[in-house]
Design a protein around this nucleic acid. Sequence first.
RNA 1: GUCCCGUUCAUCUAGAGGCCUAGGAUCCCAGCCUUUCACGCUGGUUACAGGGGUUCGACUCCCCUACGGGACGCCA
Length: 467
Amino acid sequence: MTVKTRFAPSPTGYLHVGGARTALFSWLYARRHGGHFVLRIEDTDLERSTQASVNAILEGMTWLGLEYDEGPFYQTHRFDHYNEVIDTLMEKGLAYRCNCSKERLEKLREEQMAAKQKPRYDGHCCDRGISPDEPHVIRFRNPLEGEVTFDDLIRGRITVANSELDDLIIRRSDGSPTYNLTVVVDDHDMGITQVIRGDDHINNTPRQINLYQAMGWDVPAFAHVPMILGDDGSRLSKRHGAVSVMQYKEEGYLPEALLNYLVRLGWSHGDQELFSVDEMIELFDLEAVNRAPSTFNTDKLNWINQQYIKDADPAHVARLLSPHMGDLGIDPSEGPDLVEVVEAQRERASTLVELAAISAFYYRDFEEFDPKACKKVFKGEADQALAAVSQRLAALDAWEREAIHDAIKETVDALGVGFGKVAMPLRIAVTGGAPSPDLDLTLYLVGREASLRRIDRAIATIQDTRA
RNA sequence: GUCCCGUUCAUCUAGAGGCCUAGGAUCCCAGCCUUUCACGCUGGUUACAGGGGUUCGACUCCCCUACGGGACGCCA
């Protein structure tokens, strides 16, 4: 049987990292087994579903590169079909109308809680033969006896007694079907073979299995992945800062780095930390998914992102960096080649936002020299050293790394001082104090004109301070 | 409250009864490298929730307790 998995978010907000990881696992599983991956929008909650959320989810999936083979399907387009199934259930006597009031249900619930029982519907209407003409909901007639067992692909065998389950509503009083019904109908119709979803659905699984069996359908396999917790141990939410996938894009994370971080959250392959997408596909395995929930840790994400910035193709990083330079008001085409800048700076930043910030000086003069660096370096004979090196740099025939390096070395020799006596003031003069690579490379990228201009400014600053 | 699920360093995890005086990674600290900042390298602190079994032997299997999470909705 061909493997088919799905991701089925409800469009009530953006795509968050928990959902993204579930989607990733489903996608990897399908890819790993040469199967199909389906995207289905579960928008049966008319009140809360929005088109903006659908767009946000699609955007997040696209950014992460989790392309789907089928869909997106919308449950709101399939109401007629759900109603057919519900009608079939009614005809078979496996569902019934119920007109219990909110008040009765609330009272029942309170009584059960007081009696230390699990609150559940008591089947009051199951044989009352309520007329279709009066307001009602339809409930599924859950088996009263026996138990439901399934072998979860991640957690092993799970058994729940039918006596723990109640007759759930499958059609609301407004005629719309509910989640537990639609999810079963869709997973069946779409031929889903492995249902991979968050473990908050474990409790729904037995009643869904009962629905499959009532319809005489094959039951798919289930895999419940543990939740992602915030750093305070509670379920990850907006309170914990960035949880929207697109926010990570804005903050300068590479999609492949986020994917790498997410795949390692709950899954492992020995001691390996870094996985290309192709490796993930090759190695991913539900059996190796952890059963315990895990905590989202930005430090580690940052490290992984840094590894990607450092080791990925510089042209690729430059393309992703460009918009972040734009955010700083810099047009990278008006200055040194951004790819060369990336090669020079990339091991000094863990996000693209940082990389942009520490690379701005290649493209424009900085506001001021870093005060701490000034205090440390712009003193003594620094102005003379700068004047001497400036003269040599100005006289260079070609503005090339080797020539620049020689000019600095010659200045050092002529002055009879240590390398740092010239190099340090020069570096601060040209960079303002930003992290930077080898001096000759730095000057080369900044360019002769800007370098000399900044050296003059540094000399003036030193002399002002002295005066 | 009831039911379901879970519990190895601060965090992500390795571990399928002896290979474990518990390994890797992040974080933190120290040192090395060094013209800044990094990168890199070396080293260090830190964990099997507790208690009972089973076994010659338990991080690994079973039970209990504790703690955490989830579900209990005309949300998904």
